[in-house]
Amino acid sequence: MKNSLRVHAALFTAAFIYAANYSLSKDVMPHFARPFGLVTLRVIGAALFFNILSQFVTKDRITGRADTVRSILCGLIGIACNQLLFFSGLELTTPINASLVQTVSPIVVVLASAILLGEKITPTRATGILLAGVGAALIILGRKTGALPGQDTPLGNLYILLNATAFGIYLVIVTPLMRKYHPFTVLARIFLVGALAVVPFGWRQAAAIDYAHLPLLIWSEILYMVICLTILAYLLNNWALKYASPALTGVYIYLQPVLAVIIAVGLGKDTFTLQKALQASLIFIGVFLVSRKPKAASKPAAATVPLEPVQVQE
């Protein structure tokens, strides 16, 4: 029970960190920094942190061809693609739109689990996938209501959808590594891979930031992105994956828009309309149906798929 509470506390804290970022990032982009520059700072900072700290915390190392390939895929998909797409999308869309589209990630977890782990998609889950897909499509294809100059809301929403897809796949493929190795060992490897992939895209934007004249508020928000959003949130999520299923971790994304709406409206960064509420309801109902645990099938134990997610003990 205690371990279950720690897992939920870790996932809730990570969800709050992500939710706050939707509004805070809008202060930084595009006036003080561009998206690829921010991602470069985040990933390099996290790569240095985890690779240095892992040398003192554990002697565990990722070995074997299969695990090495998996860790490289995690770095490319979960770090490089995930973060480049997220910040590119957030620059072009609104905080609430981005947080709502992000909630399709649990759907991707289920689809990826079906493809990679052989899990069945029940009629209930299929209905949930359809409803969430309709809700996400309505947001992505919606009018550019309230868009600021230079924003392309539909394109930004599409980037966020691709980001959510990358993150959902990452949650599935990183789980076996998190259950086999120390979290710092895994994070050190995947952030190193992510840094090598991101730097060619973002070093020019990172170098173009006028660091000497950044206001204190902007400095604090950039540090928040590097320390809290990148290091702390990834650490909490990946530690939780040692004890929770990727589906449970994905479902906590479901909480992000609730927190993001409260923060964005409270800071005056966005407005929550009836149209957005209706679109969000389709996604939430869909995610709820998808996250329902299927009834146990009466099949022989030998038919169990390897690496099946472990449920948290309530």
Rank of each mutant, 00 (worst) to 15 (best):
L214H: 08
L196W: 01
I209K: 08
P200D: 09
L217C: 07
P176F: 09
L223A: 14
A212E: 14
V172W: 04
P176M: 07
H182K: 04
Y224E: 04
L223H: 10
A212M: 13
L196P: 05
L192T: 04
L223K: 08
G202P: 10
F184E: 05
S220E: 13
I218K: 02
A197F: 10
L171R: 01
A188I: 13
H213Y: 14
L229V: 09
R189M: 14
I222C: 03
K180E: 07
V199H: 03
L177R: 00
L217M: 13
P176C: 08
I173V: 10
L216S: 14
A195W: 05
R189G: 00
L192I: 10
A197R: 02
A207L: 14
K180L: 04
L171E: 02
Q205M: 09
M225K: 00
S220K: 12
L187T: 08
G194W: 00
I227L: 15
L229S: 10
T175F: 05
Y224F: 15
T185S: 10
V193E: 00
P183C: 11
Y181P: 09
H182E: 10
R189I: 05
I227V: 15
A197S: 07
A212V: 12
I173H: 00
Q205F: 06
I169F: 07
R204L: 11
F191Y: 14
Y170S: 07
